[in-house]
């Protein structure tokens, strides 16, 4: 390995199932790669301080805040944005449909992040109660709804299909823990 510091690098991120190579500055944030270089503007920038969760995407299946991840860190990973949630035929995922049926939004600004965080939650816990839902969505701020309709939307999704990405169940792989006694 060279210890020389690169001022640009080529990253390849699989975004919604499509391999996307790009040459980027090290300081480029994942959210800007998605929005400005790839044109996927469904991922929103809200607070830009890893607080509000509007920029939440799935990174290798887990919800992260893309305003606080470098594109360089996402090299070689699989990223799912809100544009990748629906099935290939356009059928919305249960999570998307739940937010529609239960009116889990007003202005919609936080909604992409809410959908991604909810998808990640339901992969961990397919049957969360209200307290678990509120806890799991603590990193996503909505200034319109008061959250009650969002909780209802998550329950709707939990009861009708759970976590899916592009029509397939989102499966979590756990890190094995070594136990030496």
């Amino acid at each position: 390995m060279s210890t020389d510091a690169a001022t640009s690098l080529t990253v390849t991120v699989t975004i919604n199932g499509r391999r996307v190579p790009r040459t980027v500055e090290p300081r480029l944030l994942l959210v800007h790669l998605l929005r400005e270089q790839v044109g996927l503007t469904g991922t929103h920038v809200g607070c830009d301080t890893s607080n509000c969760g509007a920029c939440t995407v799935l990174l290798d299946g887990e919800a992260v805040k893309s305003c606080t991840v470098l594109a360089a860190q996402a090299d070689g990973t699989e990223v799912t944005t809100v544009e990748g949630l629906a099935a290939p035929d356009g059928t919305m995922s249960a999570v998307q449909e739940g937010f529609r049926q239960e009116h889990g939004l007003q202005c919609g600004y936080c909604t992409p992040g809410m959908l991604m965080a909810t998808t990640s939650l339901l992969a961990d816990d397919p049957d969360p109660d209200e307290a678990a839902i509120r806890s799991a969505l603590e990193g996503n701020l909505c200034r319109c709804t008061g959250y009650q309709m969002i909780v209802n939307a998550v329950r709707w999704a939990a009861e009708r299909g759970g976590a899916t990405v592009a029509g397939e169940p989102l499966v979590r792989t756990e890190t094995p823990v070594e136990v030496t006694r």
Binding site: M1, T3, D4, A5, P26, R27, L29, H32, D48
Partner: peptide, 20 residues
């Protein structure tokens, strides 16, 4: 908000990180 420019080294072992 965007960080100031910086150089980037990706280490694949702790020895590489220490060398950098």
């Amino acid at each position: 908000m965007i960080p100031a420019p910086f150089g980037y080294v990706r280490a694949t072992s702790s020895d590489e990180a220490l060398a950098a």
